[in-house]
Amino acid sequence: MTEITFDQLLDARGLNCPMPVVKARKGVAELETGQVLKVVSTDRGSVKDFQGWAKIAKNVELVAQESGTEEDGRELFVHFVRRTA
């Protein structure tokens, strides 16, 4: 897995719909244009949610999505979003 560089990290673990996207939106608003926010979530639905967000919003781009497992066995869904405007 190649390392993706990011500027800010948002821990959205334990949060459910619609909170990961809501928090990520706030996080992106605090970025400079061109910077990347990494969002770590435990919400399976967030995978499609972030894809939908990137499709609708004019100022964000989904750079990459990854999944993994935490030490306690919880599944993790990681999203990298770039502020484009």
């Binding site: 719909c17 619609p18 996207v21 809501v22 990520a24 939106r25 949610d49 939908g52 967000w53 609708i56 919003a57 004019k58 100022n59």
Partner: peptide
């Protein structure tokens, strides 16, 4: 409210 906040979050 989930729909409303979700829509607002994606820029609507």
């Amino acid at each position: 409210f989930v729909l409303a906040t979700g829509a607002a979050a994606v820029g609507q």
